[in-house]
Design a protein around this nucleic acid. Structure first.
Length: 799
RNA sequence: GGGCAAGUGGUGGAAUGGCAUACACGAAGGACUUAAAAUCCUUUGGCCGCAAGGUCGUGAGGGUUCAACUCCCUCCUUGCCCACCA
């Protein structure tokens, strides 16, 4: 018979809620600790990924609580979004009813896991008390010119009938439904995140406790590149075409330039040329293709000669101007200089159209090849050749020298380019925050006045799944009066992308009921920034970047005095089964609820932490669950057989464990912390435990198996919650060993182990080692060449 | 194609320059039991050997070092992120 987990877990969940032990209040006496896990999308049931994410967070929160920190550990729901709308279409229900139903299922499941949330702070982004402040933030951005409308070619998902951010297009398909993305021109709302690009990049340096790879991904996404804008003058005219390049070292190898078909100068250039008719045909064809198609690698690069030439400013060479679909107007200047020998795309294009090539950087591993014999472009490092006064320089050095020289000559300008695009937030969808603007025939675009917020999302709307946003069809919503002139006007029907909602929810948690602003300045001043944030690696770019952007915006509004929202970040690995990610479509889901029923939440928590370190992938194994259950039962039985005092051997083991577990918890190494708790338990089974030893073990295990340990704690006669017991301290005096084992190697190979007094002198140790019979045979009377001694650990004799 | 991870027993994993395989699962054997479950104890990387012991061994190959799973170089495999970004 195992311990009665069902009764125990229920008992303590009720007790914790009654005693409000997780309710957080600012307190000047204690140090604050804000621990946050990425809040879930209410899809219906919690899955193992949630269980893992929230268990990791809960252990950290409870550990800090026992350490005496004032812990804020809130939970809420990222409740707006497309699945609710798709469910409404499919199940003939309403998105808000569906969403609330899902939240109603998930909340008790989270409670059953025993997570230490302050449920009084629960929030849901689809509540008007939340999205009102989305609208407030939007209006502030609009005031400051950070929100703007732009007609632009956007990615259009024909299935979802919505626009997608560039970031949401996955391999030419919609990231949710994978339909092929088309191009469509629409008036869209954008946020000028690009205004913050320097700060977003620079402040990555402050994030010393973020994983390296997340920093690298953010940095790549912002994509700062130093380059040169080179001015190519037309043959026989003073007009110039600016071209941006990150490889100014290859300028002497530029043998033609290429314009995007949309380039404003194209029509002028081809006018009256024999190629005009054919070129126009090509341009028309290219304009029909979406960027996604043009950007795909499997489509052949097409292009056409314009009949015109420019002058290469470094050597006054005449080079032809081409038009090609692989050059996009949106990037750089819409024109490139082509260096076929040192850029693979240019190389393929040049080969296909029989354009000239010249090598200007020597591959150190091979002879300078005849360009005709090259099979691919050489894009690596090397020494400049065919580059006039720059010959012989390493190309990285030449990059700088050529840039400086050309800038001085007035033929180019050193420039910085960024990859980061402005953030498209418009969605032609119902289930999101209405964008608070009104269109008046007389006054134009008018912001909804602050005192009229929130612009309520109407409860009823027709969901057919066709023909754009349901909001367009709700007359009571659509028709409004102009706030300026009171004449009939129309509301904006676009809603905000849900990333907007999640870009500042961590601030709202500080004062979830606040109604004078998005958050109470003082409360946020006390709790923020988040000390530890935990979530999936899939949010490494978008969510984290947008949250950082919003934080900087709030700082600029004077609402907060810090610039980064999350001090420490942990990205947990995925949960796999049979080597594959657990997912509904694969049908390899294990329902957490069934595991709780069979083994209890404490066992599930223990297993999920023990099976792998938090950052790596976790392979689900039902037998591992059995093992976790066995361990808890083993600890449970210790209380049946307590001694009055523990022997020295066990006390030493206890203090060693306290040291190890304390360090491991700090570093989120829960798997090894559990391993040492198991070792302590094994030691207890060897020698028998005293009450004090078992109590200490219970405290150390309590963040992982909280219900279990509370019960054990109470059985041992304690009246107050174990989470107020304080974290145990270890005594170095107990860790000192009298005798230690020294490893003896001969020529780096393990040959013997000798036991010596811990305070042995080097001389004595050396004598003892050389006198050892085994070592003598290995030395074969040869004199040691070298004698390496690592104190307290190891000796290596070299002969 | 680029960037970043990772690769260790039958399995999950431990060790981040100093005893490779902690801890657990699984397996084998034993104790208890009429029996089973549960529990407790023992063994458990490969090869040679009755044993003592030896020897090989952390994806492959090279290097640095008294000493390499750990650091460096080249390559292979897998995963994630990104990609006509000039």
């Amino acid at each position: 018979m195992g311990y009665p987990f069902k009764e125990i877990e229920q008992k303590w969940q009720i007790n914790w809620e009654k005693e409000k032990i997780f309710s957080a209040q600012p307190s000047q006496g204690k140090k604050k600790y804000y621990l946050l896990e990425m809040f879930p999308y209410p899809s219906g049931k919690i899955h193992m990924g949630h269980v893992r994410n929230y268990t990791i967070g809960d252990v950290a929160a409870r550990f800090k609580m026992i350490m005496g920190f004032n812990v804020l550990h809130p939970m809420g729901f990222d409740a707006f979004g497309q699945p609710a709308e798709n469910a409404a279409i499919k199940n003939k229900t309403k998105p808000d009813i569906w969403t609330h139903k899902c939240i109603g299922w998930m909340r008790p499941e989270l409670k059953k896991m025993g997570f230490s949330y302050d449920w009084q702070r629960e929030l849901s982004t689809s509540d008007s008390s939340y999205y009102k402040w989305n609208q407030w933030v939007f209006l502030k951005m609009l005031e400051r010119g950070l929100a703007y409308k732009k007609a632009s070619s956007v990615n259009w998902c024909p299935s979802c009938e919505t626009t997608l951010a560039n970031e949401e297009v996955v391999e030419g398909g919609c990231w949710r439904c994978h339909s092929k993305v088309e191009e469509k021109q629409l008036e869209q709302w954008f946020l000028k995140i690009s205004v913050y690009k320097e700060r977003l990049l620079e402040d990555l340096g402050k994030l010393t406790e973020w994983p390296e790879r997340v920093l690298a991904m953010q940095s790549n996404w912002i994509g700062r590149s130093q380059g040169l804008e080179i001015y190519f003058r037309f043959k026989g005219s003073d007009r110039v075409i600016p071209v941006f390049t990150t490889r100014p070292d290859t300028i002497f190898g530029a043998t033609y330039i290429v314009l995007a078909p949309e380039h404003p100068l194209v029509k002028e250039i081809i006018k009256g040329k024999p190629q005009e008719k054919e070129a126009l045909k090509f341009i028309a064809k290219a304009s029909k293709e979406s960027n996604v198609v043009r950007a795909s690698t499997d489509v052949k690069k097409e292009g056409i000669f314009t009949g015109s030439f420019v002058i290469n400013p470094v050597n006054n060479e005449e080079i032809p101007i081409w038009i090609a679909d692989y050059v996009l107007m949106e990037y750089g200047t819409g024109a490139i200089m082509a260096v076929p020998t040192h850029d693979q795309r240019d190389f393929l294009f040049a080969k296909a159209h029989k354009l000239p090539m010249r090598v200007v950087i020597e591959n150190p591993k091979s002879q300078i090849p005849n360009p005709k014999e090259m099979k691919e472009a050489y894009e690596g490092q090397g020494i400049q050749v065919n580059s006039a006064q720059f010959d012989g320089l390493p190309n990285e050095e030449a990059k700088i020298k050529i840039s400086q020289w050309m800038e001085k000559e007035g033929t180019a300008k050193i420039q910085t380019h960024w990859r980061l695009r402005d953030w498209l937030i418009s969605r032609q969808r119902y289930w999101g925050t209405p964008i608070p603007v009104i269109y008046c025939k007389r006054c134009g675009l008018v912001p909804v006045p602050y005192e009229e917020l929130p612009v309520q999302l109407p409860k009823d709307a027709p969901f057919t799944g066709e023909g754009g946003s349901p909001l367009c069809k709700v007359k009571e919503f659509l028709n409004a009066r102009c706030p300026k002139c009171s004449s009939p006007a129309q509301r904006e029907t676009d809603t905000m992308a849900t990333f907007f909602d999640s870009s500042w929810y961590f601030l709202r948690f500080c004062s979830p009921g606040y109604d004078k602003g998005p958050f109470d300045k003082e409360e946020a001043g006390y709790w923020m920034p988040v000390d530890q944030y935990i979530g999936g690696i899939e949010h490494a770019i978008l969510h984290l970047l947008y949250s950082r952007f919003f934080t900087k915006f709030f700082q600029d509004l004077g609402l907060i005095d810090f610039s980064e929202p999350f001090i420490r970040l942990l990205t947990q690995g995925m949960v796999l089964k049979d080597g594959q990610v657990m997912s509904k479509s694969r049908g390899n889901i294990v329902d957490p609820d069934s595991i709780i029923k069979k083994y209890g939440a404490d066992t599930l928590r223990l297993f999920i932490l023990f099976a792998a370190p938090p950052e790596t992938e976790l392979e689900w194994d039902e037998r591992g669950i059995e093992g976790a259950s066995k361990f808890l039962n083993r600890v449970w039985r210790i209380q049946e057989n307590l001694k009055d005092s523990a022997d020295h051997f066990l006390i030493r083991a206890l203090h060693k464990t306290i040291k190890k577990v304390s360090e491991d918890f700090q570093g989120f190494k829960f798997n090894t912390a559990i391993a040492s708790l198991m070792e302590l338990t094994n030691a207890i089974y060897q020698s028998g435990a005293s009450q004090q030893v078992l109590e200490t073990l219970a405290i150390m295990l309590s963040p992982i198996a909280p219900h279990f340990c509370e019960e054990l704690w109470q059985i041992l006669g304690n009246k107050e919650s174990i989470f107020k017991a304080g974290w145990p301290k270890y005594d170095l005096a107990f860790l000192k060993e009298e005798k230690i084992t020294i490893v003896v190697q001969v020529n780096g190979k393990l040959r013997a182990k000798i036991e010596v007094a811990a305070d042995i002198s080097e001389k004595e140790l050396k004598e003892m080692v050389l006198a050892d019979e085994k070592i003598k045979t290995w030395l074969e009377n040869k004199p040691p060449k070298n004698f390496i001694l690592i104190p307290q650990k190891l000796v290596n004799i070299v002969v």
